[in-house]
């Protein structure tokens, strides 16, 4: 009896499992959970060894307040000059990186893990400038992106950013959770 019941439900179980697999995969591809990172990048060494402590040095803002996101090759080559030295004993001189040669200045060879769907209007500048009464920031880069500054690779460390994470923060900070705050 029990065996026949199991046989009866097997197709349903398999179907559900495949269905969840496909929807998970679709969700991942929309949110770019496996984004291409063609050039390796070591956040830790840039931050700790070479003293770039401000994230906005590379991930800055446009003049109208929109977040630039990933830097372009032009921003990398401002330090790693295209006609610079390949090797040097002096640690403070940024070397020339031959891997930039095949890219134009406007290229962005990385894709973002944190890509949000089209219906989300996320404003980095508003979230990053929100302050408590005593002047502390309400959110830091790490609260959503994880400890990216201490990472040595380009792996995703905090997972996909789902709406629940945004709403949890908004609830905890007594901010408005109305749909139109982020969605369009």
């Amino acid at each position: 009896m029990r065996r026949s019941l199991l046989l009866f439900f097997t197709p349903f179980i398999i179907f559900t499992w495949i269905f969840f697999g496909i929807s998970q995969k679709g969700c991942d591809s929309v949110m770019q959970a496996d984004a291409a990172k063609k050039i390796p990048f070591n956040h830790q060494s840039h931050v700790e060894k070479y003293g770039i402590s401000d994230c906005t040095t590379c991930h800055g803002y446009e003049e109208n307040g929109r977040f630039k996101g990933l830097p372009t090759i032009a921003e990398c080559t401002t330090c790693h000059a295209r006609d610079g030295v390949l090797t040097s004993d002096d640690q403070s001189i940024p070397r020339k990186k031959p891997m930039f040669d095949s890219y134009k200045d406007t290229d962005q060879p990385w894709e973002s893990f944190a890509k949000q769907p089209d219906l989300v209007y996320f404003s980095h500048s508003v979230v990053m400038t929100a302050k408590y009464d005593d002047g502390r920031l309400k959110a830091r880069c790490g609260s959503c992106h994880g400890d990216k500054a201490d990472s040595t690779g380009t792996k995703m460390i905090k997972g996909k950013m789902l709406m629940g994470q945004c709403m949890d923060c908004h609830t905890a900070l007594n901010l408005s959770n109305k749909c139109a705050v982020c969605h369009d």
């Binding site: 803002y61 003049e63 109208n64 307040g65 404003s123 500048s125 508003v126």
Partner: peptide, 10 residues
Amino acid sequence: KRERDAATAK
């Protein structure tokens, strides 16, 4: 939302 971005930039 866009105007709010511009305002925070200022």
